[in-house]
Amino acid sequence: MWELLISLIIGSTLIGIGVHFIPVGGAPAALSTSAGVPTGAPMITIGMGITGILSAALAIGQPNYIIALSGAVGSMIMMSITMFFSNVIHIYGVGVPLASSNFEKDPLTGFEQDAFVSPGTTGHGIPTISYVSGLIGSLLGGVGGSLAFASIYSTFSTYLNYSTVINGTLATIFSLMLFFIVAVMASYNIGGTIQGFYDEKFKQKIISGTISCFIISVVLSLVYVFIIWGLIYG
């Protein structure tokens, strides 16, 4: 049970940190007046969590690190496809260059941002450094979610006499709930838009974000361990 508690806390804290890395633009980004993924942080994180956990569930029966890797790869593929097609629509559909006014120079490509930001907006599309940041975020979120999935699944399969399908269903439900709660709490901490780890806002928010995600994951993990203890011995 201690093993389960610790891996749940680590997993949901990783999810909470990963949410901060994802470049989120919210509704303004859907109108091309702000950089980032054009939806809210909870939506994109829940989508990422569902794909990650489904691809982790495909690797049931393998060792734990394979399950974690599989979940991470699933989340990263979902995230990169979302960001890529958001960029395609921004470039060829709306007709705006990819730029953000939150930083002056992209450290990877070296492109100056200021000249390409339309007046009155804070950028559009997802620049290279934000794209990389989104990949890092989905890696952390996927690893966290599939870590929780693997630990819950292995606890169930050790102590309960259900079939593989029922164990997998229960573990999927429980680990998705982690995404639902932790992602929303982290996005309350972000409060609006963020452009990845190169953004000034990230440096202000990450410490309080980590602490608050840790607290909420401790509370949640205690409830979870209580529930799973009840499932096994109740």
Binding site: A27, M177, V184, N189, I190
Partner: peptide, 16 residues
């Protein structure tokens, strides 16, 4: 700080 649907998502998970 974030959209309206997020409240329902989180509280529905708490309810579950």
């Amino acid at each position: 700080g974030t959209g309206v649907p997020s409240i329902i998502y989180m509280l529905m998970a708490v309810a579950l």
